[in-house]
Design a binder for these strands. Structure first.
Lengths: 158, 158
DNA sequence: TTAAGATAGTCTCATTTGCAACCATCTAAA
DNA sequence: TTTAGATGGTTGCAAATGAGACTATCTTAA
């Protein structure tokens, strides 16, 4: 007779852990800066890259639906945290980038989030953290969640 | 100047990985059996425990909101997959358990899900899988997502 | 016994989000 | 060219879900 212990079932554990970790982080960007998760992902993507990029690019690399990104972009523009400029070579898309205010928010938020991440992982030794990152990477690669060298060049096209 | 690479940021990676793994599994319980995630959690909890338990217990141990569980219970009852009996000693709560049909579905579904889990983790060696489970466990424990011996006895009260 | 507070479960409401239709624009092939 | 199909982005709609009010019931202490 088949049995499945939810508490030992990796998919369930990942779901629960991700939800818990997200909740812990949201107190930073949500409560303090009024950003929801999609908005934070837009800010994070634009802040990390120095060049402007399209909404589609953000949707692809954060694995978020394009309509969700579209709404986040609208909200962030009305708050003057990002701006968009027309792309002369392709008038369908817009190039997005942080405004000065957006940059300031990014600079203020990032250290807080990195501190939270350290807190959450502080139960692991340095070696264990490294191992954990490596194992996550292997699973991501096998699910094609990360860019192989081939896929990376395709991503550039976005 | 602070920077944060989303692709190396563990909270983001956990979210993305959990979403991807869930999507891979949902093709089993969703497409084939018409169960959504909350419904599957109710089935899984009832199938694993031999005794009947309350909706509140399921909500607590799967970390799902009680209103979500309530809806899942209603849906599963109309499909005759679970049944509930009054609890004479506390008439506020109901004891839930799988019906025969529910048991049959459980027996059919579990091997499929376990196979999927194996597939997803097949990119890791046996030792790596063990390590990964152990590291997950440490993080869960530090976030109090799992029952310590003390918390376990409290859980019994549900 | 009574009253205050806790708890189980349901229900309504508001929010979030994915889907898909849609428009504008681009690309490629006839 | 012209046309068919692909792509970027927006929006309306529906489904899912959490918050919190609410009822019924239980518990505890005055």
């Amino acid at each position: 007779m088949a049995k499945l212990d939810l508490f030992k079932f990796v998919p369930f554990r990942l779901n629960r852990l991700a939800a818990e970790v997200s909740a812990a982080l949201s107190s930073e960007y949500q409560a303090r800066y009024g950003l929801d998760i999609p908005e934070w992902r837009v800010i994070a993507t634009l802040g990390f890259r120095n060049d402007a990029c399209s909404a589609q690019y953000i949707a692809h690399c954060t694995r978020t639906h394009k309509s969700t990104i579209s709404r986040a972009v609208t909200a962030l523009m009305t708050r003057d945290l990002i701006e968009r400029v027309e792309n002369a070579s392709d008038r369908r898309e817009f190039r997005l980038r942080l405004t000065q205010r957006g940059h300031a928010l990014y600079e203020e938020l990032i250290p807080r989030l990195l501190r939270k991440e350290r807190e959450i992982l502080s139960c692991l030794s340095a070696q264990e953290r490294k191992d954990f990152a490596g194992l996550l990477g292997k699973i991501e690669a096998s699910l094609e969640l990360v860019q192989t060298s081939k896929a990376a060049s395709e991503t550039e096209a976005y």
